[in-house]
Design a protein around this nucleic acid. Structure first.
Lengths: 340, 340
DNA sequence: TTGTAGGCGTTATCAA
DNA sequence: TTGATAACGCCTACAA
């Protein structure tokens, strides 16, 4: 059985309070003699404080709950891994919840994390197919008296702390790049367009088109999910509409397109150009290496942790959502049409 | 402020005990009238039990601590993701700890998880470069009165519950396949050979060689780490020894080899054959698709959760380490030399 | 310099 | 059918 503070106290012949004082370096003067006795008792009994008990009384758990769509996607894996590293140095632990984009699971985790009294929550998706679900989540969050910070797939203009990358800009950058290389019929392989992330990327897409005097064609928008599977399905569909390039709304989708291109015996970028979003570290390994819009994962993670810790410490500065910039990574998956 | 059980009791005009009975469906008879009063009070105050308090008294936290080398490696990401899904249905949560293979961080997480009184721990690496570190970890674990189960990078023959894939067989399968296609000079790109995983894979490698009447040549063994980086470094080195094929001790290493092959203008599998281990879902996307030895991640996760829950429930059956079988996945990265 | 005692939010054991 | 009350393991005023 694990020793308790009482055991230590008894062993050292002092009161539990004294042990607590010493172990927590409280500013009370303790004689060297007793301090030593206590410390040896601690060692002898291999005493370690029960964090549950401490949490109950101090009302802090040193735990951050992180709710992700899918930790199997390297983008989110990197995000949480990076946060964890940052937090570990502060002796904080990370609890992970994967939702698969399901609002019900999202709410479940919000409740669980709240019930466990985590010190803060990082939420990577608050926006769902069904708007009602989003509203339900927001209601739930209002009832949770825990600092929450949004990350990645956030809703713009909502009155909450958030770290986000400019999604419209992502769509704009990707599309403009394709246009500048002579592409005119550009297909989109997107997740649900009801999600703001995707809607915004699509908006950026149309903005770029307009700049080139083009109108967007809804036939060129294929919607499914932000997964490999989506790319597989999108390819034949968009090919049927004679696109010369596909803007995949994330790298996973792009992977699906790569995969399916093999089946159709298509060579990227000769037969089809592809551009992705996220810059997962595998994208560089593909043949050809995937040109993509990179999101600064580490920065997102750093900022999220920073702001969240401030929130927890109640150093709550004025509300200002952080917006980070995406960056175009030119590699080998887009063909220059104007050259040929 | 969050309502407590006392608030509910007061609101309903009953004692806290009664509230607790009702909420936990204890087998005590409660009049319909009071039950209803309590339930409406709960709703009105939006009462939710504080899990910390519950944990303190019940001595269970419904939490499993998972300690991984690197959750950014899709193999481990899948592992933990799958466990989490399984556990979620049992209302259990997963805490993640990434160690980067560092024994000090490993121990730190063991302590943290123990101090937080998790119900069980899944440990994916117990074996380190420095044997002393391994011993230290084992000592620590002996002092932790929490069920621990090893997974993946385990030590064979140790007296603990473990779910593992037969690592020797992995090496054997991979090598035999290469040999059967006519390869004779086969390089190994490995992590530290002091780790049992790698040593065992190498042992399987030599077994297969012997079967073909060949001796292993230490010059063909390149050791670094189980990462992309290792593959990059291994390529020029092994190439210098005239290998026709490289056995990468995991897929990440194989990716590094792919990456570096581009710089050397080498075509896989024409100029060099490569085989990996793990069968990460990206391996299928590479050009050419990576031939690899697949480890049954989902089975590992399922078994680990199953055994761990049994251990926790004290249904501790007789000790018997589970050993799962690896499977060769033939794809396109190995050339048949006997054909040419 | 150290000890006593109340409280954190529950559950659980008795009584009533 | 319900209510006191003692744990659980710790922190922290307040006393001594």
């Amino acid at each position: 059985m694990r020793a308790t503070i009482k055991d230590v106290a008894k062993e050292a012949g002092v009161s539990p309070a004294t042990v607590s004082f010493i172990l927590n370096n409280k500013p009370v003067s303790i004689s060297e003699a007793t301090r030593e006795r206590v410390l040896t008792a601690v060692k002898k009994l291999q005493y370690r404080p029960n964090q549950l008990a401490i949490s109950l009384v101090t009302n802090t758990t040193n735990t951050i709950g992180v709710i992700l769509p899918d930790s199997t996607n390297p983008f989110f894996a990197s995000l949480s891994h990076h946060m964890e590293e940052k937090l570990r140095s502060k002796n904080m632990t990370v609890i992970i919840g994967n939702t698969n984009g399901d609002p019900v699971i999202t709410r479940k985790y919000l409740q669980i994390f709240s019930d466990r009294r985590v010190d803060g929550i990082v939420l990577a998706q608050l926006d769902f197919e069904d708007e009602e679900e989003t509203v339900k989540c927001q209601e739930l969050m209002r009832n949770i008296d825990i600092p929450i910070i949004y990350v990645d797939r956030v809703i713009e203009g909502c009155d909450h702390y958030s770290i986000a990358v400019d999604q419209t800009k992502i769509g704009y950058l990707a599309t403009k790049y394709l246009l500048s290389l002579g592409h005119r019929r550009i297909g989109c392989a997107s997740g649900s367009i009801r999600l703001k992330v995707n809607a915004n990327r699509y908006h950026g897409y149309t903005m770029a088109l307009h700049e080139f005097g083009l109108e967007s064609d809804s036939a060129l928008l294929f919607c499914d999910s932000l997964s490999i599977d989506c790319g597989c399905k999108a390819l034949p569909c968009l090919l049927g509409h004679n696109v010369s390039a596909i803007f995949a709304f994330n790298d996973m989708i792009a992977y699906g397109i790569y995969k399916e291109c093999k089946n159709y015996n298509l060579i990227i970028p000769n037969d089809l150009s592809v551009i992705g979003v996220d810059d997962i570290y595998f994208s560089d390994l593909l043949q050809p290496p995937l040109t993509t819009i990179s999101q600064p994962v580490n920065e997102i993670a750093d900022e999220a942790v920073k702001v969240l810790l401030e929130l927890i410490a109640n150093t709550s500065k004025s509300f200002s959502p952080v917006k980070l910039n995406p960056v175009l990574k030119v590699r080998g998956s887009v063909k220059n049409l104007s050259e040929s």
